[in-house]
Amino acid sequence: MTVRKLPVIGFAVLMALTSLGASAQSAQGSPQGAASGEVPKAPPTTKQAKALIAERFKAADADHDGKLTRDEAQAGMPQVYANFDKIDAKKSGTVTERQIGSYWMKKTKDQMQKEDPIWN
């Protein structure tokens, strides 16, 4: 069961790390007590996560060539920029949406293994 959750968790982590900060700004404006009684939102499905990542990648890809340069990543996906050298394993100077997804999936899998090595 844990193996099936891995893609969803990976995409959820990716979405959280690549967010543009809009949700953080809205959370700062709400009182602390308001969110404590609410049920947390379920993580998005894999399909929803892929769509959101694709949307953010498309917005960050200024020249629409299917690749992000370091400058495009810095402007549109700050967490990708912060990990650009790790994601760009081929050292081509650009990263694709697929490379970003692969990097975050591996990172999530490694974290899950570290947290619970028996089940992962």
Results as ranks from 00 to 15, higher is better:
residue 94 T to A: 06
residue 38 E to Y: 14
residue 81 Y to V: 15
residue 117 P to C: 06
residue 120 N to E: 11
residue 119 W to P: 01
residue 118 I to S: 04
residue 81 Y to C: 13
residue 8 V to F: 02
residue 23 S to D: 09
residue 26 S to G: 05
residue 104 W to L: 09
residue 54 A to H: 09
residue 44 P to D: 09
residue 77 M to Q: 10
residue 110 D to W: 00
residue 84 F to W: 04
residue 59 A to Y: 02
residue 93 G to W: 12
residue 104 W to V: 15
residue 37 G to P: 14
residue 51 A to W: 05
residue 115 E to H: 01
residue 70 R to P: 00
residue 98 R to M: 02
residue 108 T to K: 14
residue 99 Q to G: 14
residue 19 S to Y: 00
residue 3 V to R: 11
residue 101 G to V: 10
residue 21 G to Q: 08
residue 114 K to G: 12
residue 45 T to D: 07
residue 97 E to D: 13
residue 19 S to T: 02
residue 39 V to H: 09
residue 33 G to S: 12
residue 29 G to L: 03
residue 52 L to G: 10
residue 16 A to V: 11
residue 22 A to W: 09
residue 23 S to K: 03
residue 119 W to Q: 06
residue 38 E to F: 10
residue 117 P to F: 10
residue 28 Q to M: 13
residue 60 A to L: 12
residue 51 A to D: 11
residue 75 A to Y: 09
residue 3 V to G: 15
residue 108 T to F: 02
residue 28 Q to D: 05
residue 115 E to N: 01
residue 33 G to I: 07
residue 94 T to K: 00
residue 71 D to R: 04
residue 57 F to A: 01
residue 89 A to T: 12
residue 35 A to Q: 14
residue 71 D to S: 09
residue 77 M to A: 06
residue 56 R to E: 00
residue 60 A to C: 11
residue 59 A to H: 06
residue 60 A to G: 05
residue 52 L to H: 09
residue 72 E to S: 04
residue 41 K to E: 13
residue 109 K to L: 05
residue 93 G to S: 03
residue 107 K to W: 05
residue 10 G to H: 10
residue 92 S to N: 07
residue 68 L to E: 03
residue 38 E to I: 08
residue 87 I to K: 11
residue 106 K to Q: 13
residue 26 S to W: 08
residue 101 G to Y: 09
residue 21 G to T: 03
residue 106 K to L: 12
residue 86 K to F: 12
residue 58 K to W: 02
residue 53 I to S: 01
residue 57 F to Q: 00
residue 94 T to Q: 10
residue 96 T to P: 04
residue 49 A to R: 00
residue 10 G to Y: 04
residue 93 G to C: 12
residue 40 P to H: 09
residue 101 G to D: 15
residue 21 G to R: 13
residue 25 Q to Y: 13
residue 99 Q to R: 12
residue 84 F to N: 05
residue 69 T to S: 03
residue 55 E to L: 00
residue 57 F to G: 00
residue 13 V to T: 12
residue 35 A to C: 01
residue 24 A to R: 04
residue 18 T to G: 07
residue 19 S to A: 05
residue 90 K to R: 05
residue 71 D to W: 07
residue 10 G to M: 07
residue 25 Q to L: 02
residue 7 P to C: 10
residue 4 R to V: 02
residue 110 D to S: 04
residue 115 E to M: 06
residue 29 G to F: 00
residue 73 A to P: 02
residue 62 A to P: 02
residue 8 V to Y: 01
residue 34 A to G: 06
residue 22 A to E: 12
residue 31 P to T: 06
residue 84 F to Y: 07
residue 114 K to H: 08
residue 33 G to P: 07
residue 86 K to R: 03
residue 105 M to F: 14
residue 98 R to F: 01
residue 114 K to L: 10
residue 112 M to L: 08
residue 24 A to C: 03
residue 95 V to F: 14
residue 5 K to H: 09
residue 11 F to W: 06
residue 19 S to R: 01
residue 46 T to R: 07
residue 68 L to W: 00
residue 95 V to D: 02
residue 64 H to Q: 13
residue 19 S to L: 02
residue 33 G to L: 14
residue 79 Q to S: 15
residue 28 Q to W: 02
residue 39 V to I: 14
residue 78 P to S: 15
residue 110 D to N: 08
residue 26 S to H: 03
residue 75 A to P: 04
residue 87 I to C: 04
residue 107 K to I: 01
residue 67 K to E: 15
residue 16 A to E: 04
residue 45 T to C: 06
residue 112 M to W: 03
residue 29 G to V: 06
residue 31 P to G: 15
residue 36 S to G: 07
residue 65 D to T: 12
residue 78 P to T: 11
residue 108 T to H: 11
